[in-house]
Design a protein around this nucleic acid. Structure first.
Length: 592
DNA sequence: CGGTTTTGACCAGCGC
DNA sequence: GCGCTGGTCAAAACCG
C-alpha cells in the first residue's frame, strides 16, 4: 500500500473513531452511521486494494532493466531488480514528489486529530469509555510512530538525493572545465534511474568523459535514488573502430534509401564524431533544422506486455542516449536519437497499420497521435530483432497540440537530447537558431514550441515538441533544462495559455511549461524576450538549489508514470481506460 | 454506438 | 519496367 493510501486509511479510521465517539455521546443518527459504514467499507476496500497491490507488485517485483551505457566496444549493462524494499522506497519517493511539506503536514494532521480527539474524549469524560479510549490512544500512538518512521525514511531519501545532486554538480563542473577545443563530440547519457544499477563491466574506455552517473559514485549505497547525468565523448577513430566490433546497427527505417541508422547494441558504437556529424549536415549552417525531421527512437526492455510492465514498475529507469547515425546522412535526413526509456509516453495513439518489415520477423506497428485531430505525429513500434524483449518505438513529427504531462516530460527529454546533439555538433559557430525562421506561435503549440517561437530559435523539429534553442548555451544546459522543466511541474505554475477545455491537462495546476508566454513567471529555461544570446537565467538557480533539483527529479519521475501508470492528462486519462493497449501494443507485435 | 484494431490492398520510392 | 519494401488507407471486425 502506498504511503498515501495508508495515510488516507489512517485518516479515515480516525474519522470513524471520532464519529463513533460522537454518536455514542449524542445518540447519533442513522444517516451518519450509514456513512460510517461506508467509510469502513472504503477503508476495507482500500486495505484490500493495498494488499492486492502488494501481491501484484510482489509478483512483478523482479523486473530486470538493462540499460546500455554506450561504452566503447564493451557491453555495459546496467541491471537492477526491483525488490520489495526498493519499491517501498520508491513509494516514499513518490510521496516526496507530492511535496516535502506534505509528509510533515500529514504527521501534523494526524497529531492534530489525535489532540482534538483526545480533548473531545476528555470533554465527554465517561468512565465507561476509558478502556476504549486507551486502546484508541495506543492505536493512534502506534500509527504516529509508524508515520514518524516513515518520515525519517523520507528524509533519508531526500538527503541522498541532495547528496547525489552535489556529486553530479561537481562532476558537471569538472566536465565543463575541460578544454573546449577537444575534438570529440559528447555522448549524452541522461539517466533518472534506479540506484541499484550495477555495471557489468567497468568503463574501460579512456575517451569517456567524467561521468556523473550516480551508479559510479554510489557503489554500495544501494538505497540511493539513482540519478545520473553522464557525459562521454568518443573520437572519430574510436567511432570507426566501433564498426569492427559487433555493434549492431539497426536501420531506423529499414529499407530506407538513405540509410540512417539507429545504433543499438550492447556493444554500442560510440556516438559519431564531429566529422560524421558534418557529413550528416548537422554542422553545416546551410542546414535548416526546421526542415530536419527528427526521429526519436524509444527503446523499452519489456519481457511481457508493456502495460503490465508499466503498472508493475515502481522504479523507473530513464536514460537517454544520443548518437547520430554512423551511416552517411544527407541534410534531409532525420536526426536519429535513441532513447532508452521505461515509461509510457503519455500520448494517445491509434494504430493504423502493421507490417512485417524486412529483416525482422516481428511486425512493425504504425500509430498516429489522436490527442488532437490532424496531429501529424506518428510512431512505429517494433520488437528488436536482436533482443525480442526490447521494443523500439520511433516517433516522428511534431504535435500540433499541447501535451499531457507525461508526454511533455518525455518531450523535454528527447527534445533536450535533440537540441543537445545539434548544439554540440554545430559548435558555437553554426547555431541552429541561425538557420530557421521564426514563425508566429499558434495557441495550440506545446510549451516548448511556444518558447521556441518566442525566442525565435526554431530548432529541429522533434518528436513531441521543440525545446528552446539557445545559441552559445551548451547542450548540458538543455539537459539542465530538462530538470528545470520538471521543476516547473513541481511548482505548479498556472498555464493561462492553455485554459481551454479541449486539452484538460493544459489547465491543470501541474501543467508543464506553463505561463511561458503569457506573462506570469517565465520558466527558467526561457530566454528573456527571445534574445537568444542570453543564458537561461534560472538554470543556475535551480542547479544550485538542491531542494529544487531533487524536487524536479522527483517530479520528472512522477510525470513519466503518473499514478498507477496512467497518464495524468485529462483527455488521455479518460480514454486510456478504454484500451490499455494504447500504450502497449506489445501483444500484437509478438514474434511469430 | 463510437472508437479502436485488424488486415488486405494500394501507393510511392528505390534498386536492379 | 519490374520487383521489393516501407508506409498508408480503408473496410470490416472488435470492444467497452
Amino acid at each position: 500500500m502506498s504511503s498515501k493510501k495508508k495515510r488516507a486509511a489512517i485518516d479515515l479510521s480516525l474519522e470513524v473513531e471520532t464519529r463513533e465517539e460522537d454518536d455514542r455521546s449524542s445518540g447519533g443518527d442513522s444517516d451518519r452511521r450509514s456513512k460510517d459504514g461506508e467509510m469502513d467499507k472504503e477503508e476495507e476496500q482500500l486495505k484490500r486494494h493495498g494488499e492486492a497491490l502488494k501481491e501484484e507488485t510482489s509478483e512483478e517485483k523482479v523486473v530486470e532493466v538493462v540499460v546500455d551505457q554506450g561504452g566503447k566496444g564493451s557491453m555495459e549493462e546496467i541491471k537492477y531488480r526491483t525488490q520489495p524494499g526498493e519499491m517501498e522506497e520508491d513509494k516514499q519517493l513518490e510521496e516526496e514528489e507530492d511535496g516535502n511539506d506534505e509528509s510533515d503536514g500529514a504527521d501534523t494532521r494526524a497529531e492534530d486529530k489525535h489532540v482534538v480527539e483526545d480533548a473531545g474524549n476528555r470533554n465527554h469524560g465517561g468512565d465507561s469509555h476509558t478502556t476504549m479510549e486507551q486502546d484508541e490512544v495506543s492505536a493512534m500512538q502506534e500509527e504516529m510512530e509508524k508515520m514518524k518512521e516513515e518520515n525519517k525514511m523520507l528524509r533519508r531519501v531526500v538527503d541522498r538525493t541532495v547528496r547525489d545532486y552535489y556529486e553530479l554538480q561537481m562532476k558537471l563542473a569538472a566536465y565543463q572545465q575541460q578544454p573546449a577545443d577537444e575534438p570529440k563530440e559528447p555522448e549524452v547519457f541522461l539517466s533518472l534511474g534506479e540506484p541499484k544499477l550495477k555495471r557489468k563491466e567497468e568503463q574501460a574506455t579512456t575517451t569517456r568523459r567524467p561521468s556523473l552517473s550516480s551508479d559510479e559514485t554510489d557503489d554500495g549505497n544501494k538505497e540511493d535514488l539513482g540519478l545520473s547525468l553522464s557525459l562521454g565523448a568518443y573520437d572519430k577513430e574510436k567511432l570507426e573502430e566501433g564498426h569492427d566490433h559487433d555493434a549492431a546497427i539497426i536501420p531506423a527505417g529499414e529499407g530506407r534509401p538513405r540509410g540512417y541508422a539507429l545504433l543499438e547494441s550492447s556493444k554500442l558504437v560510440p556516438p559519431a564524431a564531429s566529422g560524421d556529424l558534418a557529413s550528416a549536415g548537422i554542422t553545416s549552417q546551410s542546414v535548416n533544422p526546421a526542415n530536419r525531421k527528427t526521429r526519436v527512437s524509444v527503446r523499452v526492455r519489456c519481457q511481457g506486455p508493456t502495460v503490465r510492465l508499466i503498472h508493475a514498475l515502481n522504479k523507473y529507469t530513464f536514460s537517454c542516449y544520443m548518437f547520430p547515425s554512423t551511416a552517411k546522412l544527407s541534410n534531409d535526413d532525420p536526426l536519429i536519437i535513441s532513447v532508452y526509456v521505461q515509461m509510457n509516453d503519455g500520448c494517445q495513439w491509434r494504430k493504423y497499420g502493421q507490417k512485417v518489415a524486412k529483416g525482422n520477423p516481428c511486425p512493425r506497428a504504425y500509430y498516429r497521435c489522436t490527442v488532437a485531430p490532424g496531429c501529424p505525429v506518428r510512431k512505429q513500434v517494433q520488437r528488436c530483432l536482436e533482443d525480442m524483449s526490447i521494443l523500439v518505438t520511433t516517433y516522428e513529427g511534431t504535435h500540433n497540440h499541447p501535451l499531457p504531462v507525461g508526454a511533455t516530460a518525455m518531450a523535454s527529454t528527447t527534445s533536450a537530447a535533440a537540441t543537445f546533439m545539434l548544439l554540440s555538433s554545430t559548435n558555437s559557430s553554426s547555431s541552429i537558431s541561425d538557420a530557421g525562421g521564426a514563425t508566429a506561435a499558434p495557441p495550440y503549440l506545446s510549451p516548448y514550441q511556444l518558447i521556441n517561437s518566442t525566442s525565435h530559435h526554431p530548432a529541429a523539429s522533434s518528436f513531441l515538441s521543440t525545446p528552446p534553442s539557445v545559441p552559445g548555451a551548451s547542450g548540458i544546459q538543455h539537459l539542465n533544462n530538462l530538470f528545470g522543466h520538471s521543476s516547473m511541474l513541481a511548482h505548479h505554475q498556472q498555464a493561462p495559455h492553455y485554459s481551454s477545455n479541449k486539452y484538460p491537462w493544459s489547465s491543470s495546476p501541474s501543467t508543464l511549461g506553463s505561463g511561458t508566454l503569457t506573462g506570469g513567471k517565465r520558466p527558467f529555461w526561457s530566454t528573456s524576450g527571445g534574445r537568444g544570446d542570453e543564458k537561461p537565467d534560472n538554470v543556475d538557480a535551480v542547479m544550485s538549489d538542491p531542494s529544487k533539483i531533487s524536487m524536479a527529479i522527483a517530479t520528472a519521475i512522477n510525470s513519466f508514470m503518473g499514478k498507477d501508470g496512467q497518464v495524468t492528462g485529462g483527455k488521455d486519462g479518460e480514454s486510456s481506460s478504454k484500451s490499455s493497449n494504447k500504450w502497449g501494443v506489445v501483444e500484437s507485435l509478438a514474434p511469430p
